[in-house]
């Protein structure tokens, strides 16, 4: 088989392993959907001040953004760290499989799970909580590129980040920073409530920009005035996510190791 066919083969294997790991399914795949349901049940129809949004409408962009980061960054950081530690990567390296097939398998996993999660999240928002989804092509186009750039950046950054963790420490090393980032990036509550200096910190990382991009897709345009710059800033969003994607790719190439530290 050639490298691409082997990559497809790896994707199927990755999906089998992912779907059989209940923790992964729960904490990265279903988590944003459950959070959306939880917020909707707790806060009901009275969110967003004057604009009279329901909680489901209000939190949908944040949950979509959190979902993108969980299925790309968290999945990659945790699985690559574990596979490096338990010798899976070494075993793969001992076969004639081209290295690129391994990464194609991971990309296939992320693309499949992230897309499935978004479809499920949107379906639950629409049919269970009555959220009106956008009806213009322009908004869905924005959704597509924010999703694509965000998931790509998350995948390469997660792979690079995996070098910092071992199987033993991966929970703390990956999950804690993710949680902090989600809070300061305005995923779980209004970004306007966050102090200015913390907003500046959040603005360095991709999640704030993914969330802002997703708000521009799902929120009425008059809410753009609530953003830091008073506008949706699509150009800057694309630029920041693009820079992170390229930086992540370079870090991946420079830091990726097939063997555990101290064993080569």
């Amino acid at each position: 088989m050639n490298a691409v066919a082997l990559g497809f083969d790896r994707t199927l294997l990755e999906l089998k392993m992912y779907s059989r790991e209940k923790e992964a399914v729960f904490f990265s795949f279903l988590f944003p959907i459950m959070m959306l349901a939880l917020f909707s049940v707790i806060f009901g129809d009275s969110m967003g001040g004057d604009s009279q949004m329901s909680a489901a409408e209000y939190f949908l962009p944040g949950m979509i953004s959190a979902g993108i980061l969980l299925t790309s960054f968290q999945t990659m950081a945790m699985s690559v760290a574990a596979e490096r530690d338990d010798g899976t990567l070494k075993r793969l390296r001992s076969t004639p499989m081209p290295p690129v097939s391994y990464f194609l398998g991971k990309v296939g996993l992320v693309v499949t799970t992230a897309l499935a999660q978004q479809v499920l999240l949107l379906a639950v928002a629409k049919f269970a909580f009555g959220v009106d989804l956008p009806d213009t092509a322009a908004r869905w186009l924005t959704f597509a590129w924010v999703f694509g750039l965000g998931a790509f950046a998350g995948t390469v950054l997660g792979t690079a980040y995996s070098s910092l963790a071992s199987a033993r420490t991966v929970g703390a090393v990956v999950v804690a920073p993710m949680l902090i980032l989600q809070f300061i990036s305005g995923v779980y509550f209004s970004f306007t409530d966050i102090p200015e200096w913390l907003k500046q910190v959040a603005s360095v990382f991709p999640l704030k920009w993914i969330a802002q991009g997703m708000r521009s897709v799902f929120f009425p345009d008059d809410l753009a005035s609530m953003e830091m710059a008073g506008a949706w800033e699509h150009g800057r969003t694309a630029m920041v996510l693009g820079v992170w994607a390229v930086l992540g790719l370079v870090l991946c190439v420079l830091t990726f190791r097939w063997f555990k530290r101290g064993t080569t």
Partner: peptide, 15 residues
């Protein structure tokens, strides 16, 4: 190799 863990979720036939 000396040890192979990390295959727990698959079956022998699959891997």
């Amino acid at each position: 190799l000396q040890t192979s863990s990390g295959l727990d979720l698959l079956t022998p036939r699959e891997i």
